[in-house]
Amino acid sequence: MSRLRNDYENSRFHRFEKWVDGEAAPTELKLETKEPVWRRPPEELSGPKLNEEKINAAVYDERHNKELKYFRVVNRLASVVLCLMLIGVLLWTVVYLPEFGNPDNPINNEVSARYIEKGVEETGATNFVTGMILDYRAFDTFGESCVLFIAATCVQVLMRLDNSDDREKMKKKQAEENDRIYEPKNDLILQKVSCVLVPLLFIFGIYIILNGHLSPGGGFSGGAIIGSGLILYLNAFGFKKTERFFTEKTFRRITLAALTFYCLAKSYSFFTGANHLESGIPLGTPGAILSSGLILPLNICVGLVVACTMYAFYTLFRKGGM
């Protein structure tokens, strides 16, 4: 015969059920809580004021710390030994180097002879170096310009603001990161001088790029000059003026177009084992500005990529973004 309990809430089974559900500990209901009795009044607990200087001096007691002394001595000794070992290894290898200026040296092989003898004839560029880097070894240069692009994109990824769904939060973040309100400094002297210098820099950079196959220079140096001109313009007049012609979108489009053109024009050499393949463009007379086939457009591509990357790095590293 079962008996119906009236006080189910206090029954053992209900307590167990509650414990299973995680609502209460089995012993919780039995415990009586008392206010803790302070033996001492709480003010005394803090005790006498701790002297921070004394504690710091005791903790960072470098003079009497034997381990630290030992570590420093070992550290210095190890650095000296490492340096000596490096010097020894390098000197050891120097002994095995071929004699300087010896005509039988391995660098004086048929490759450089071929470049010097047939370079102008085959590439059409009077500047040997450009003929080498943009014709014989164009694929290397493609990798170099890709490295620049990848570096710029990596910085962009690292400096990107975290995307949050909340539009208000995003706005707040952008406002915090934005330091363009302090720009430009509107320095009259800088503005007047950059009015004169920036066009000159651009023209000089373009001249160097376009004459890459005729005289020393080429895409890399000319691009660097154009990039510095852009940076000077930005410093003088601020983002409002540069954003009219150069934003992140422009950067993306220019680099993408230049790299794609380069890839389409030259990457076949990777598949043909770096063999020369006729581009179909006549080489022209060496020394003329429109000569040497694909080298001029490739120089322009490299110059564009380098200029954009220089400018992108500058703008990215000064917090404001592009």
Partner: peptide, 8 residues
């Protein structure tokens, strides 16, 4: 042109 402005 460039050096005095940079100094400035």
């Amino acid at each position: 042109l460039a050096s005095p402005v940079a100094g400035h």
